[in-house]
Every structure is written in structure tokens, then in C-alpha cells.
Design a protein around this nucleic acid. Structure first.
Lengths: 194, 194
DNA sequence: CTTCATACGGAACATTCATTCCGTTATTCT
DNA sequence: AGAATAACGGAATGAATGTTCCGTATGAAG
């Protein structure tokens, strides 16, 4: 019936995600998108609607690519401590690899948009809580096995760990030294063990 | 010789600080500034230069108003634990009072601008480190008094505490429940005591 | 091979952006 | 009181914003 798209929709969505992730919503212009995605204006708007819709799809893409695996792994991990440590290591590795620190797309969006954009706030909130739930499952398992402290409910410890992860995503933006990372991770993990 | 300003320069700078703090740099337009500051365009540009210069001055204003006191208090506080707890309480109080969660102007600016704006990055970095140093002094005093753990260097614990504070400023943006706050603060403080 | 719906490139759109300019007003100093 | 200077209000600037529109190219279906 009709001409076929010459670009891969998911692949281009990936590029959009990375653009928004790196520069944020407001600082990424339609022109940036046209140049960054490598498709024309009309294809952009025909395929993804407007800029805001594209951003929302980018958020969902981020969840699929970057969150879902880590969340589902929490239920099956044999070693809760290693799992939680791996979450920190992941943040650290990403921070040290990148020349420009993108941080976390969810954290960036929460700070930039959540207070004024209900749609973004809802998505971010949902993803953040899913992630916290995952941490909570791992913490509970660790408590059951006796390797984590039972001085606090699993939920409290999960909130604590998740909060520290969010903090690192901020610290990365102005100080990505390896030493600071290790310090913070070590203290966090030892807090789980008392 | 000349006509006197009809507005108070510091007072208007305060309003600018609050605008940028609440909405960020990119989302605050020149029009928003004119309306929010209550002065005309020409007065705005004559007095503060351009938008970016005004933003930089707002950052410094924030430091003076919101950081310096807390930093200098760290050296003289008789009770380091109460001091650190008060830092958390301050974040909590601010979060619960505000209808819209502004979070921390420094954190917001770090996330929105630091990776691309060297001038902002330098200022934020300097303020953040001053604050961390303050926490470090309090931690060291607590260690000297034997109320905090000596398992980690004061610097490591300070980084940990400061990181948790940054995390809270993010968490605030999508979940400002009192319970989550208390959970996080309690675990953080108990981590200092082992 | 023709048909036809759709992808495409790029010009065009109104709006908003940050910034400048100018004529007027007001205040301080002589 | 008068001259000099700076603040002021508001219109005007050009560039950039997000979005739409249109003519052409393309490829699947009949």
C-alpha cells in the first residue's frame, strides 16, 4: 500500500532517549532532534507526535532498557549483597566511563520536570518505586538469610539504599572521582550489616 | 546626579533566586523574570546584565543565604550529632512545607547545567565541597568525642552523609512522604555510630 | 504496470526567546 | 532652579523555538 519507513523506529527512539538523557528536555531543541536522530522533521512528527510525546516514549524506553532487567533480577538473585553492590558498581562504572556525566535519566527528569509535568512525574514515580521495591526484595532476602541487619524494616533499608543511589547520580555531575564513590558505597553497604 | 533605583537590588535578586530555584534556568524565561521580579526589562538588563549573569548572581545569593550559616555553624557546634541531624531535618521541613518541591538550588543546577556550563559547574562544585567540608568537621569532632564510629575516616563518612542529603533533594521531587524521610535519616545517622 | 497510501525533504509558520533601543521621568548635585 | 545623569516603561529587534504544510519520491498491493 505505502512506502516503508527507511529508519528503524526503536533505533531512532534510542537516539532520542540518549539526547534527552544527556541534555534534558528543555535544552534539547527540535533542531537538535532532527540532527541527532538523522530523520527529517516531518518523519519525526509523523512517527512520534510532538516533542513531549517523544520524550515520554524515551522515558519508557529507558525503563525497558535500563531498569527492568535490574528490577527482575532482584527476585532471583542468590546473593542479595552482591546484587545491591552491583547496583552501586553500575552507577560507578557509568560515571567513570562517560566523558560527560549523563547521570540517570529518571533522576534528571525528576529534577527538571517532575514538579511541573504531571505525566512525567507519574512515570518517574512509578519507575522509582518499582526500583525501590526491587531493592526491598533483595534486602528482605538478605535479612532472612541473616546477612543484613534486622534493626530496621526491609522497606526502611531499601529507601535508604535507593536514596543513596539517587545521591550518587547527583554527585556524579560535579565530582566523579573514584575515591568518593568507593567511600560512599562502602559506608552504605556496611550500614546494612549492623 | 542621577535618579535612584526604585527597587532594592538584593530584594529583587532574592526573587530571581527563587524563580530559578523553582523552575530551573531554561524553563525561566525573560518574560517570567520581568513579571516575577516586578521590574522592567531595561532595569533588569541594566542592573544584572544578561540572564546568565543574573543566574550566576542568584547562585551566589543562595550560598550566602542558605549555605554559609550552616557551614560556619559546623565548626562551633557543641553537639555534632545534633548538627548533622539538623541538616536532615532542614531538608525534611523544607520539603513538607512547600507545595511544590523546589529541592535544593545547587542540586537542581548541578543536574540541569553542570555538565554543560563550566561556570555553573565551578560554583556548584565549590559550594558542594565547602558543605562537605563542614560535615567533615562535624564528623571528625564526633569521632574525637567517641560518639561516631572510627571504622571509616571522617572524610568518607562526610561524603556518605552529604551524598544522602543530595539523594533526599531528589527523592523530594517525586515522593515527599514524611515516613520515607524518617526512615532514611535514621538509617543514615545510625551508620555513623558503628 | 498502475494505483495509492505513506515516507520523505525542506520550506514556511506563528510564537516565543533573549536582548536592545529610545523617549520619558525622576533625582541628585551644583 | 537648572543641568546632568541614570532609572524607567514599553516598543522593537532578530534569532530560535516547536510545529505544520506541501510537493515529490517510494514501494507494497491489485
Amino acid at each position: 500500500m505505502a512506502r516503508t519507513k527507511v529508519f528503524d523506529e526503536q533505533q531512532v527512539l534510542d537516539k532520542a532517549m540518549n539526547l534527552f538523557w544527556q541534555k534534558g528536555y528543555n535544552a534539547t531543541s527540535a533542531q537538535d532532534l532532527v540532527e541527532g536522530l538523522g530523520i527529517s522533521r516531518s518523519s519525526l512528527y509523523d512517527t512520534y507526535g510532538d516533542k513531549h510525546s517523544l520524550f515520554i516514549r524515551a522515558l519508557h524506553q529507558y525503563r525497558r532498557q535500563r531498569i527492568d532487567d535490574a528490577v527482575s533480577e532482584a527476585g532471583t538473585t542468590p546473593d542479595p549483597e552482591a546484587y545491591i553492590r552491583s547496583l552501586f558498581e553500575f552507577v560507578k562504572t557509568e560515571a567513570l566511563d562517560e566523558n560527560h556525566s549523563r547521570g540517570c535519566f529518571m533522576v534528571n527528569s525528576a529534577v527538571e520536570l517532575a514538579p511541573f509535568d504531571r505525566e512525567v512525574a507519574t512515570i518517574v514515580n512509578s519507575i522509582m518505586h518499582d526500583f525501590e521495591d526491587a531493592v526491598c526484595r533483595a534486602v528482605r532476602k538478605g535479612q532472612d538469610e541473616g546477612i543484613f541487619t534486622a534493626k530496621y524494616p526491609a522497606r526502611s533499608l531499601a529507601r535508604f539504599i535507593f536514596n543513596s543511589l539517587c545521591g550518587l547520580r547527583v554527585t556524579v555531575k560535579f565530582d566523579a572521582s573514584k575515591k568518593a564513590f568507593d567511600d560512599i558505597v562502602n559506608v552504605c553497604l556496611s550500614a546494612l550489616k549492623n
